[in-house]
């Protein structure tokens, strides 16, 4: 467990910084959508790459039709955001964002991309900024608009991958008054987590 990799102080710092980042994210989303959103403090988990597929299957068994959006972030803290939202939620989210009920498929897709970008930027960007580092984001990409069948995501099957463990930061986007639920995962490599531990250490030394 990555939590065990961190000292009590580092854990407290990470929790507080995430608290702040996720607060920023939900307030910007609430602002953009004119509706109060909540994002509970994330769960952090580590697992071997092969386990990840089973984790996705288990997690999203109930969802049949959805959008899956991924967004890469690069630098010392390296990884991918994955935003998963069912069709109905995406439609409602889009009509709040665009203030319209007459939406085409492309409007909904554009909205889902925009929200993913906001969440990635706010959660990961803010966290890294608080740790006094810089990060670069690729544009988000719609991986699939799909039936979730055997597996939610096709995972990298590259030979000789330089990492074995994946760190998952997982939370949920929900709204007080709207029936909208989206799942949010940040996948990072072990090496990024090592950087995170060092950065937290430096951050604590500065306090």
């Amino acid at each position: 467990m990555p939590a065990e990799l961190l000292s009590a102080d580092e854990k407290d710092a990470l929790q507080e910084l995430m608290n702040i980042s996720f607060g920023v994210a939900s307030s910007i989303i609430s602002d953009s959508l004119n509706s109060f959103s909540t994002m509970p403090l994330p769960k952090i988990d580590a697992m071997d790459l092969p386990q990840l597929e089973a984790y996705f299957d288990e997690k999203f068994r109930g969802i049949t039709q959805c959008y899956i959006v991924t967004q890469l972030f690069r630098n010392r803290f390296d990884g991918e955001s994955v935003f998963i939202i069912d069709d109905d939620s995406a439609m409602r989210l889009s009509s709040l964002l665009l203030e319209s009920d007459e939406l085409g498929k492309e409007d909904v897709q554009a909205s889902v991309l925009e929200i993913t970008n906001i969440i990635s930027s706010a959660c990961i960007g803010k966290l890294v900024e608080l740790l006094d580092a810089q990060i670069f984001f690729n544009p988000p990409v719609i991986e699939s608009t799909c039936h979730i069948g055997e597996s939610v995501l096709r995972l990298s099957k590259r030979e000789g991958m330089e990492f074995t463990k994946v760190i998952i930061i997982e939370t949920k986007l929900e709204f007080e008054t709207e029936q909208i639920t989206g799942y949010l995962l940040f996948l990072t490599k072990e090496s990024s987590f090592v950087w995170l531990k060092e950065a937290l250490g430096r951050f604590l030394d500065d306090l």
Binding site: N19, F22, S27
Partner: peptide
Amino acid sequence: VSADIQQS
């Protein structure tokens, strides 16, 4: 002082 500021 709070991370999450909602109107309510």
